[in-house]
Write a protein that binds this DNA or RNA. Structure first.
Lengths: 107, 107
DNA sequence: TATTATTATCGTAATATTGCGATATTACGA
DNA sequence: TCGTAATATCGCAATATTACGATAATAATA
């Protein structure tokens, strides 16, 4: 029974959880922060900066990318990543709504 | 190698990840939302509302409680929970700072 | 052409997380 | 006093997640 019963929750509840999940690992927070400070950066920069293996960084990049938070393009053999700001702001808005609604409900 | 290398990240990175982790499961999002809509509620209300077992709800409440987001007091045999708004707002502020800083950094 | 660099993916082992039944403890009502 | 209700915790099985070595494919350079 290690699988989450996503079917019992509403779409908006699942959405908040999915968003939060992207940030629930420090590697991914660190990656996002580092990328935001560069004009663009490549997987191996992150390997050097963060100190995890290339395979692991690539895995975490995949999670972030699947969430829509990255734009990437190849420059030769190097894949150069930068943030998808619009998506980032979408996430911020959704989380803020959740927080604000939740605290406003309370007496 | 299933354990996160938390020691390689800064405290503030770990903090963001820890906060996000509380919301990374839909049960906990749902619990927080439901509690916010009541004057106070008990574990069994949540069992009925969400549809997970009492043991599971109690587990999730424990995660939320350990994050400091709950106030609870016994009324007889019933433990009545409500939100710790201050802590909630702390989390919101920290997450917002992270999002705002990250998007502001970008060109 | 050979060598090096870059990266996504696969496979694996270790650990964390999820869900739940069982249970012990406490409170309450008949 | 007994029966019921409420809840945290334990133990367990199943699944997800984490980290990494190995590897294949591609690009660039000597």
């Amino acid at each position: 029974m290690g699988v989450t019963k996503r079917f019992i929750y509403t779409n908006s509840i699942n959405e908040i959880a999915n968003i939060a999940k992207v940030f629930a690992h420090p590697a991914r927070v660190s990656i996002l922060k580092y990328i935001s400070e560069q004009e663009g950066c490549i997987c191996n920069d992150l390997v050097n900066e963060i100190g995890l293996s290339q395979a692991t960084i690539s895995q975490h990049l995949s999670v972030i990318g699947n969430a829509g938070l990255l734009k990437g393009r190849f420059e030769g053999k190097k894949k150069c990543y930068c943030l998808n700001i619009e998506r980032f702001e979408e996430f911020q808005t959704l989380l803020n709504s959740f927080f604000t609604n939740t605290t406003a409900n309370c007496c």
